[in-house]
Design a protein around this nucleic acid. Structure first.
Lengths: 334, 334
DNA sequence: CTGAAAGCGCTTACAG
DNA sequence: CTGAAAGCGCTTACAG
């Protein structure tokens, strides 16, 4: 199908030297004379030689590729994280193999397997909801470094980077209470998500501390998309005792809420308080008065990448958990 | 570094058959007896064998990987497109290698080369601004199918999928004129972008047709991010003869504009008309009254993928240009 | 239906 | 500083 491509041997033949020397020269090894190296590079450019990584990979058992698996590329949180990972890897000479799970354990299993088949040097994974230790065993078996981010896996001691969810929402709720709010809703996140549970815990604890009962009508599960946030805030505003502030599962939900408020001609941050989580790129702009718990995806992505590259270089080191404490970012009401 | 991994030969030895048969069985070839196939698959599962694609790739010169190169992953247009491509490829058994150019021709050259080194079966590329035919020559040389999308390259006859920019903005401008607007601004897109030029052309022509002069103060170049749209609309609203409608380079700019309008307590679609381009996912929600020129990234992505897979299967077929005509989507003012 | 053999393009000890 | 040789793990004609 493809035409015969140029090989190291072709270059070697052209120059009347051995393929071994060409290989060494291309890798810029010290042991090759400057003169040889130059002739080789010159020939490579002239003939349009393209290095064959599959061959090198087969030989060396290393791939300079890492795999990134996320639930959903469309969520800006993961988009920004992906971008940060790509950037970090690029500067370190690694390429990125990307897959998504759609929160499906089957698809996740398939993605993991495929990446191992490509001999990735390591994997960055945000586990699909419901992932078990068993699901990830294959990485251990093949001795492939694995770093989890954003969501831990129950009972699994492994490299991990993620936020302190409970502490974050606890702080945010206290902040709302101090501002005098008593009817505070918690919006977003899907049923069965451990992250949601943790974030809700912080909210619950803070209310409990000041003896405000947690009301079921203020606790709304929903998918993390703009339109769900938009929808839910409409419903909440129609309640008898409608809330005066919402703590959102994340910024995307918060954006939906803000759009819903504008739509009702209400100004978020003035007539109604909204708090997000993550501090994704658009958060700074979305509402001049959006408060958010900052634990930016770029930061998580770059920390996780660093950790993974570290593991690849020094295997066998002990596991590390990087827990980032979210910072409450207040923005001036304009 | 990695422990010795299981090979086909290990499986073969275990079962007392030849590696060739194991290979055939794994590929589910007809010529292997049902019984043998089953024993092989059973052993593979039991022993936890992981197929080595590097070896297969080296042998067959095919990779079942394709490369996707975009200017910027963070732009929702490209995010959605990436997602659509990933989905399409996944169902066809291909994996995705992802890279971004940041509109830098050097980085683009590097990304192309890396992908060829990985022996991708084909490449999907949205060329960085300023890309020349020469920049893409390497694909031709290595005989790697290349499909461009969204942006053509000057003078290059090659498979391409993209919108009819001029026709789109022409229609949209006519629509605004019919609604009685006479002061219409054109916002967004960067200097030197061919796409911007095309979209501006449609706007210019429509105004010209009804003898409305094109005013420089209504033509604003800016990066395609929310905050730039937000910024620019503020400036326009402060003009002496501030416009009554804007045609935006794309939806992202339009979102920024809408946020800017809400911020001024103006309701887009009522007191001020806003038109976007692309129809990205959030457009339906962003303002209930946002009008947009629909040419969705998912559609472009999936058409481009199909075209590429087609080329991979049947090389040597003649080039094809798929020009999608944007449709004006009107949404009811609520 | 199954096996022996060659080879994909590289890298790496090992000699010289 | 350079070369000959072996081998990474697969696939594929070719025999049988």
């Amino acid at each position: 199908m493809k035409p015969p491509s140029l090989t190291l041997k072709d270059i070697a033949d052209q120059l009347g030297i051995s393929p071994a020397t060409v290989s060494l020269a291309l890798r810029n090894k010290e042991c090759v004379s400057e003169k040889t190296r130059q002739t080789v590079w010159e020939a490579v450019k002239r003939l349009g030689y393209v290095y064959n990584r599959s061959a090198a990979r087969l030989r060396t058992q290393r791939s300079t590729t890492i795999g990134l698996i996320v639930p959903n590329i469309l969520n800006p949180f993961f988009t920004e994280l992906t971008s940060a990972v790509e950037e970090k890897l690029d500067t370190c000479g690694y390429s990125l193999l990307l897959a998504k799970t759609s929160e499906d354990r089957e698809r996740q299993a398939k993605a993991l397997r495929t990446m191992l088949e490509y001999s990735v040097d390591g994997i960055l994974l945000c586990p699909a909801v419901g992932t078990t230790q068993e699901d990830l065993r294959i990485c251990e078996k093949t001795n492939t470094p694995l770093v989890l981010f954003t969501r831990p896996v129950d009972g699994l001691k492994i490299d991990y980077v993620g936020p302190d969810n409970t502490k974050g929402t606890f702080l945010a709720t206290q902040y709302l209470l101090r501002k005098g709010h008593t009817r505070i809703a918690f919006i977003g996140g899907v049923e069965g998500s451990f992250t949601r549970w943790e974030r809700y815990e912080g909210y619950r604890k803070a209310l409990e501390e000041v003896n405000i009962p947690v009301e079921n009508q203020y606790n709304r599960v929903c998918d993390t998309t703009l339109d769900h946030g938009f929808q839910v805030i409409q419903e909440l505003l129609n309640l008898q005792d409608s809330p005066t502030a919402v703590l959102c599962f994340n910024d995307v939900i918060a954006f939906g809420v803000i759009l819903g408020l504008w739509y009702h001609r209400m100004v978020p941050g003035k007539e109604f308080d909204v708090i997000g989580f993550d501090n994704i790129a658009d958060a700074a702009l979305f509402s001049p008065s959006l408060t958010t718990l900052s634990c930016p995806p770029k930061q998580i992505g770059s920390r996780a990448s660093e950790l993974l590259l570290e593991r690849i270089k020094h295997p066998g080191k002990s596991q590390e958990s990087v827990i980032l404490v979210p910072e409450l970012i207040l923005r001036d009401s304009a």
